[in-house]
Design a protein around this nucleic acid. Structure first.
Length: 574
DNA sequence: GTAGGGTTAG
């Protein structure tokens, strides 16, 4: 009876019934089954004092040696006590099991002590005593966002060595990949799960959908959507939000909106997703309208919602609206702006051409500007060819993140636009001396229910020969239309060359040629890439969209480019 | 009986 109350969040009822049980009237002595329940109620209601009292009673009855009691105490102290107490309980337990270890791992992971969490995991994997289980994988998950490859490898090892892989272990592995931008791996594992005959649940799907969006794996997204409807998994806010996200990230605004309109319980995430969907595809005013509708509906925009609306405003050049929302955030909602909000403001000012004001804004920020803030300013300087401030921004970046190749590329672009070739060469030499490697460009495209990846200059694809032939034909027609490759005038990113000194073909061109030779006319082409599109490819793809009569949607790391009839929706302004 | 998995922005 007590557990029923606890399971339904009725902690007060649970406490009263517990007191009643011990009272003179009933006089039933609580045992090792009772205490975990009541302790859980304390943890759930942040009632440390009650927990401490119970801990005392437990010790008096000699029940503190019970594994279940001990495990619950660990969770209680992680949740609302000093974490040292959790550690003490764990150390003093005469016997521990996998749950005790998992509780410790989860405690560390959820309290920002990722190294400790990973350490404990490593120990488990090494000792195999206790043997890690799905719960271990789930517990370590919070420590695995932005993890090193080695740590991800550790989780994978647990997964591979697990005897029987249940739903949760699959989910945890997929989420590990998804949280570390390893979308291809997440999607691949999802197919592995299907092949293993494990039926996905809402958690699986909500984890894998953003990865689909990331890869523009639209047909998989649609297939999952059908599955959700067939299994009647709606309403489920989290799942529906993820579904909206996949459509938004594949550039399917109408489909995203349909999901949004069909939702019964929209939360802030739902609105935010839809707002940024409009923003990403250049419908700034609609996004602003929606933001106001959200406010009218009584929902309070959270810090993420403000990041979204601010970035919508800067992408659409809505300068006044952006300034208003920055003010509104603090004055109407009493939110303290975070570094991301400041970065959005720098982007808003800089991108709209107010570079001096953006620089001034940075100097007056109450918190220390980070790499993202300076990087945003540098990006704006490239768009508006502002060399003076661009150099200041680059200086900050080269000092704080000297290994980040992208910023060298941006600076060299600024020089190139100004025709300062010696400076371009100097940046290139700087990169060589510091042994800075440019991140190799790669593009993903979905075809035949599979994601195909192309790297710069890739010749490993079975259809490689046809792809290059197709590209040749295309480039010849492009030249007839007056196109001159910028590679020839060196107005190109600091670029890799192959052994024979040829400039290598950028991956997005390879991906486009690949789709062109394998699909019927008019099929839209959707590509994602791991870098910003270079200006040369951007000009080429515009022309290809008109020659080949194809809608081409390219999502780069910065934004969507939607090419149709020879123009891009970004207005050549990115 | 105890622990643990999902969505948005940059």
């Amino acid at each position: 009876m007590i557990r029923s109350y606890v399971d339904h969040g009725l902690h007060g009822h649970a406490f009263r019934l517990f007191a009643d049980m011990k009272s003179l009237r009933h006089h039933v002595r609580p045992d090792n089954y009772t205490f975990p329940c009541v302790l859980k109620a304390c943890a759930g209601s942040d009632h440390l004092a009650g927990g401490l009292q119970l801990h005392g009673a437990v010790a008096k009855l000699g029940l503190d040696t019970d594994i279940f009691v001990g495990n619950t105490l660990i969770a209680l102290y992680w949740r609302c006590g000093p974490s040292s107490d959790a550690l003490r309980v764990f150390d003093e337990m005469p016997n521990t099991d996998v749950v005790s270890w998992n509780a410790m791992i989860a405690g560390y992971a959820q309290n920002g002590q990722c190294d400790r969490a990973i350490e404990l995991c490593e120990k488990m994997v090494a000792l195999q005593k206790p043997q890690p289980d799905a719960g271990t994988m789930a517990s370590i998950l919070p420590a695995m966002s932005n993890a090193n490859r080695t740590d991800i490898h550790l989780v994978r090892k647990m997964f591979d060595e697990m005897g029987k892989k249940d739903l949760v272990s699959w989910n945890a592995m997929i989420a590990t990949y998804a949280n570390n931008s390893m979308s291809a791996e997440a999607v691949e594992l999802f197919s592995g799960m299907e092949m293993a005959g494990v039926e996905p649940d809402a958690v699986t799907l909500a984890s894998v959908l953003p990865a689909c969006g990331d890869l523009l794996a639209l047909s998989l997204g649609k297939r999952i959507h059908e599955f959700i409807e067939r299994k009647r998994m709606q309403p489920n806010v989290v799942l529906e939000n993820a579904l909206m996200d996949v459509y938004a990230n594949c550039g399917c605004l109408t489909a995203a909106r349909e999901v949004f309109d069909g939702m019964t319980g929209k939360d802030v995430v739902s609105w935010t997703t839809m707002i940024s969907a409009y923003g990403m595809l250049g419908h700034g005013t609609k996004a602003v309208t929606l933001f106001e509708q959200m406010r009218k509906s009584g929902l309070k925009p959270d810090p993420v919602a403000f990041i979204s609306i601010l970035s919508v405003c800067s992408r659409s050049g809505l300068l006044d609206e952006g300034k208003y929302y920055f003010k509104c955030m603090t004055e109407c909602y009493h939110l303290v702006p975070r570094i991301e909000h400041y970065a959005c403001m720098v982007d808003l000012l800089g991108r709209s051409g107010h570079i001096d004001e953006a620089y001034d804004f940075i100097l007056k920020m109450p918190i220390k500007p980070n790499e993202r803030v300076w990087g945003t300013l540098l990006g704006a300087c490239r768009v508006h060819s502002n060399m003076e401030i661009g150099m200041i921004a680059a200086d900050h970046l080269f000092n704080s993140v000297p290994e980040q190749s992208g910023y060298y590329v941006l600076l060299s672009n600024i020089y190139a636009r100004a025709g300062r070739w010696e400076d371009v060469m100097q940046v290139r030499n700087l990169m060589m001396n510091k042994r800075i490697k440019k991140l190799p460009g790669c593009s993903n495209v979905e075809l035949w229910n599979k994601v195909h990846t192309f790297h710069i200059g890739d010749r490993s694809h079975p259809q490689s020969e046809e792809i290059y032939e197709k590209l040749d034909v295309l480039m010849r027609r492009l030249k007839e239309l007056g196109y001159v490759a910028e590679t020839e005038t060196a107005l190109h990113d600091v670029e890799e060359e192959d052994k024979e000194g040829h400039l290598l073909v950028h991956s997005e061109k390879l991906a486009i040629a690949f789709v062109l030779i394998n699909t019927t006319p008019k099929t839209p082409i959707r590509i994602t890439m791991n870098l910003r599109m270079c200006g040369d490819c951007h000009r080429a793809v515009k022309l290809i969209s008109s020659i080949a009569e194809r809608e081409i949607i390219i999502k780069d790391t910065n934004r969507f480019h939607h090419f149709e009839h020879g123009v891009c929706a970004c207005g050549d302004y990115w």
